[in-house]
Design a protein around this nucleic acid. Structure first.
Length: 220
DNA sequence: AACGTGATCCC
DNA sequence: TGGGATCACGT
């Protein structure tokens, strides 16, 4: 366990008491865009999802932590009273490297969900797709779900409530991929407005850059 | 039947 | 990893 405040500040042995059920917390969300969902036929590796705050020089992974609040009571001799303080501890932390998303073919969606039901994988008891119907299930975005069970020294177990990450969007899908600007006809405009700006983005069929005059016609 | 789009597969 | 070919299907 790691203490988030300096224990040396406690001049006598504190009495600790857990105030709440420990909670599972997503402390580093997955990067929401930039990864492609891969089909099984595309091979073993589906890539690895980085953390939302990841940079080239400082890579992070999606990370969860178990948090719990403790109450510490100690005697303050000079004030002659018992004072309590809350401190946040984190019990443990877990990062996930090399998470990738493997997508299921629409036709195999039914089977895939059934498989999950059979394995009892349904953290929110949502009956997997029962409410929306799989027809209009969004196949281009997912959330990661984390579950955790704690076992205390006395053998008691705590099943923590499952948590989900923010959504992750498929980079390959035209509907959710990041649009990259590859051409702009103007880079500034009047504060009064009325400047028409045409912006060409990725996912259009690329073509030779047209002349300034033919631009608009080509675009629309 | 041709075309357009998204899904899937291939390299 | 990313681009593109190919498939599937609706119009």
């Amino acid at each position: 366990w790691e203490c988030l405040f300096p224990l040396s500040q406690c001049d006598n042995e504190p009495l600790a008491q857990i105030l709440d059920k420990p909670r599972l917390v997503v402390v580093e969300e997955p990067k929401d865009r930039g990864m492609r969902f891969r089909y099984q036929c595309e091979g073993r590796s589906a890539g690895s999802i980085l953390g939302a705050s990841s940079t080239d020089s400082n890579k992070t992974q999606p990370t969860i932590e178990v948090h719990t609040w403790f109450l510490f009571l100690r005697w303050e001799f000079n004030i002659s009273e018992t004072v309590g303080k809350y401190f946040l501890y984190f019990v443990s932390s877990c990062s996930f490297a090399n998470l990738g998303i493997q997508c299921v073919k629409r036709k195999e969606l039914d089977d895939s969900l059934q498989k999950r039901r059979n394995q009892n994988i349904d953290p929110f008891q949502s009956e997997l797709g029962a409410q929306t119907g799989i027809e209009d299930m969004d196949m281009n975005s997912v959330r990661l779900c984390f579950q955790c069970e704690l076992e205390w020294e006395d053998g008691r177990k705590d099943s923590l409530s499952p948590v989900v990450s923010k959504p992750i969007y498929d980079k390959k899908a035209t509907t959710t991929s990041e649009l990259k600007i590859y051409n702009l006809n103007k880079f500034k405009g009047s504060c009064k407005g009325k400047t028409e700006v045409y912006m060409l983005c990725d996912k259009h069929t690329k073509r030779p850059v047209p002349s300034q005059t033919s631009y608009v016609n080509q675009m629309f």
